[in-house]
Computed example of a mutant assay.
Amino acid sequence: MNRILATILDVANVFTAAGVILISAFAGAKLYAGQGEMALIGYVVGSVIGCFFAALICGVISMLSLIEKHLSFIASSVEYQNVMTKMQIDGRIDPRM
């Protein structure tokens, strides 16, 4: 269940980043809307600012998700190693191999 929730958070994180960038772009265009071609500059400036905030907000969530994946891999590796050690102690595998 936790793995499913982590995957959902990863997908939601992508859409959140895209939403932050788009909202910032439209806010920048709205700021320069009455000035003709300056609306294009508003889109660009808004997009750059949106990318910055998306990197801050969604980047932290992404890093936490990556840490969770690494910890999950480490836990499964430790579990596998414990099984192999138990099999070696029980004499089911030859330790010289």
Rank of each mutant, 00 (worst) to 15 (best):
M1V: 07
N2G: 10
I4T: 13
L5F: 13
A6D: 08
A6T: 09
T7P: 10
I8C: 11
V11I: 14
A12K: 11
V14Y: 08
F15A: 07
T16P: 00
G19T: 09
I21V: 14
I23D: 07
I23G: 03
A27E: 06
A29N: 08
L31G: 01
L31R: 11
G34R: 06
Q35L: 07
G36F: 03
E37A: 08
M38H: 00
M38Y: 09
M38S: 05
A39L: 11
A39K: 15
I41V: 14
I41Q: 08
V44F: 09
V45F: 08
V45C: 03
V48G: 01
G50R: 02
C51Q: 07
C51E: 04
F52I: 13
F52M: 12
F52W: 10
L56D: 02
L56V: 06
I57H: 01
I57G: 02
I57N: 00
G59Y: 06
G59M: 08
V60I: 09
S62D: 10
M63W: 07
L64S: 04
S65R: 12
K69A: 05
L71E: 12
F73C: 07
I74S: 13
I74K: 15
A75F: 10
A75I: 07
S77Q: 14
V78H: 06
V78G: 05
E79H: 13
Y80V: 03
N82Q: 10
N82M: 05
V83H: 04
M84P: 00
T85C: 03
M87L: 14
I89F: 05
G91E: 03
R92A: 04
R92Q: 06
P95F: 02
R96C: 02
M97D: 09
M97I: 13
